[in-house]
């Protein structure tokens, strides 16, 4: 088992003929992901990396039975792309695009409350269930299949760093997902923890947070209230100055709230093992997950 993606995931890539879309379609195919279709309006009937291209998501779904979308379209067109995927009956949309206007995301998020679609991202590296399916831009080779640890993070390359440390400790992963660095996103820490708690193959969860918002605090309360599996946490941004946006649109300490320190404290108070030093995160996980490995 795993969460959200596995062998049955059939991917349609929206924006497949763009530079990023094409490159990562190849990477996903090489990893073994079932990429069954691509969409670029006006290029229907062509092929890209051996994958048939359609003009609309609905057309791709009808022909290929795609159930998951991987979105690379430019920021101001991305809301349209997510809504199109939802309308076509897609169950999971993984949105890599960075720079989507916040008001667009507010509208999309509100609409999705009455839809079957789960959105991961935007501004994220995607999701991988190692050895089964990779729907994203992360390097597949650093992951170790077979579980039992789930990883959920707001970051991209920082996720690769922590996954690499787990793998070097010999700790495999059930599923690793990035939920994105934007202030308004689809899947939250809380959603991912809930799914990992239900997944029989996941024995523990590593949550990688950063400054800004209160998603870590909410996740911490959920972990204390609802979870039986051990959770380890890391929070980036102890040295971040207040009021400055640290690269990610959502990474800003405002009015003294959303600091790394307050998040670390919230996690600890709720029984989450926190590692403050990235250099020893792998060691820390090996100790904290010892009982479940």
């Amino acid at each position: 088992m795993s969460i959200y993606v596995d062998e049955n995931t059939r991917v349609v890539v929206q924006g497949i003929t763009g530079r990023e879309g094409r490159f990562h379609t190849r990477q996903c195919l090489d990893y073994g992901t079932a990429v069954v279709a691509g969409v670029t309006p006006g290029k229907g009937g062509q092929e890209m990396e051996g994958v048939p291209v359609y003009d609309t998501v609905a057309g791709a779904v009808e022909d290929t039975g795609a159930n998951c979308s991987l979105i690379f379209v430019p920021p101001t067109l991305a809301a349209d792309a997510v809504l199109e995927a939802a309308d076509a009956g897609i169950g999971l949309a993984v949105t890599i695009t960075e720079g989507i206007p916040v008001l667009d995301m507010l509208r999309v998020k509100t609409h999705l409350q009455s839809s079957q679609l789960r959105l991961i991202g935007p501004n994220c590296p995607g999701i991988i269930s190692p050895g089964r399916s990779k729907v994203g831009i992360m390097p597949g080779a650093i992951h170790k299949p077979g579980g039992p640890i789930g990883v959920v993070s707001r970051s991209g390359t920082l996720t690769y760093e922590v996954v690499d440390q787990l793998t070097k400790q010999g700790i495999g992963q059930s599923t690793c997902l990035g939920i994105g660095g934007d202030p308004v996103n689809g899947t939250s820490f809380l959603d991912a923890l809930e799914a990992f708690e239900r997944d029989p193959e996941t024995a523990g969860v590593l949550i990688v947070g950063e400054i800004g918002g209160d998603a870590e605090e909410r996740a911490a309360e959920f972990a204390a209230r609802e979870m039986h599996k051990p959770v380890v946490g890391f929070v980036a941004g102890l040295t971040a100055p207040p009021g400055r946006r640290m690269g990610h649109a959502g990474a800003v300490i405002s009015g003294g709230s959303g600091t790394a320190r307050s998040k670390i404290e919230a996690l600890r108070e709720n029984g989450v093992t926190v590692c403050e030093d990235l250099g020893s995160l792998g060691d820390c996980c090996a100790r904290a997950f010892l009982g479940v490995l």
Binding site: L158, I211, T239, M246
Partner: peptide, 9 residues
């Protein structure tokens, strides 16, 4: 950005 913040830390 996340790795950059963690590197500063």
């Amino acid at each position: 950005a996340g790795l950059a913040m963690a590197t500063m830390d």
